Simulated assay, not measured.
Amino acid sequence: MDTAGGAGRRAIIFHGTGGNPGVAWYPWLAGQLSERGYVVDVPHHPEVNVEPIGTFLPKVLDQHRFDEHTVLVGHSGGAALLLAVLEHVQVTVAQAILVAGYSTQPNTSEEPVLQADYDWDAIRSHVRDIYFVNSRNDPYGCDDRQGRAMFDRLGGTQIVRDDGHFGDYNQEYDTFELVNRLIP
């Protein structure tokens, strides 16, 4: 099934709220990783941050395979989804990168992707290497304070930029060299 080189490396890139696999830097990153031998999945999950996480998460877990060679990348609502995924997977994945991620209400919008609380120890035990990439000037509140709150609970590496939301309907962000360099 896996055609990647090495040990069957795979990457899953989760888009944000209202997004799809063809926007922002997702197709570019998928291409970069494919060239390096990853089997890459950029699923379309229009239910991200629309359907409550309690009913949405089991569908996500059933649709994807996770193992010790899996790299997870999530943007915005997709990054918030990764927290629930990491809490509930039954393996320890290689890496997770949460771009413009958040674990608490970042603004006044409803956030059905968020759980009421998290088992931070379970999340920490299910990922070997975790990064939080946030901006100080994120227009939706998915900012460096959100990244710091997750970093304080999980460790890993926090990277703070001044790059808005790292891609949105009014912010072109067709490539993302930083995230590409973080993935071995």
Rank of each mutant, 00 (worst) to 15 (best):
S103P: 03
D62E: 14
L182F: 09
P184D: 15
D174A: 10
G16C: 10
Q63D: 14
V179P: 01
P58C: 08
V48D: 05
V127C: 13
E87M: 03
D129Y: 02
L178K: 07
H75C: 05
D162F: 05
E111K: 15
G78C: 06
R36T: 08
Y26Q: 02
Q105V: 04
G8D: 14
R161D: 02
H44C: 08
N137W: 07
G18R: 06
Y131H: 11
Y173L: 00
E111W: 13
R161A: 07
D143N: 15
E110P: 12
S76M: 10
I12Q: 07
M1H: 15
A30C: 09
R65M: 12
Y118E: 03
G77C: 04
G156P: 09
D138P: 14
V40R: 02
F132K: 02
I13K: 01
G156F: 05
Y26P: 00
G37K: 01
Y26A: 00
G167Y: 00
P46K: 05
N49A: 13
P112L: 08
T70C: 10
R10I: 01
D129W: 02
E47M: 10
E110S: 15
T55L: 07
P184K: 14
A7N: 14
R145K: 13
R145Y: 11
D138Q: 14
A11Y: 06
W120S: 05
Y140G: 03
L83Q: 07
H126I: 02
N180V: 13
V179G: 09
D138G: 12
Y26M: 08
L154W: 01
G5N: 12
V23M: 12
N137M: 06
N170E: 09
V127E: 05
F176N: 13
S135L: 01
A80N: 04
E51R: 13
E111Q: 15
A79L: 07
A116F: 00
P21C: 05
L114W: 07
R153I: 01
L81S: 10
D168V: 00
T55S: 13
V23K: 11
N137A: 05
A24C: 10
N107T: 01
G141S: 11
P58T: 05
P139I: 03
T108H: 12
A100D: 08
A94Q: 15
N180S: 15
D174E: 13
R65Q: 14
N49H: 12
G101A: 01
N107I: 02
V93D: 07
P21F: 07
Y38E: 07
L114H: 05
G77H: 04
V99L: 13
G16F: 09
V133Y: 01
V71R: 10
D67K: 06
N20R: 10
G22N: 11
I130L: 11
D129G: 00
V127G: 04
V40K: 03
V99I: 13
G19K: 10
A96I: 03
L114Q: 03
I97K: 04
V48L: 12
Y173R: 00
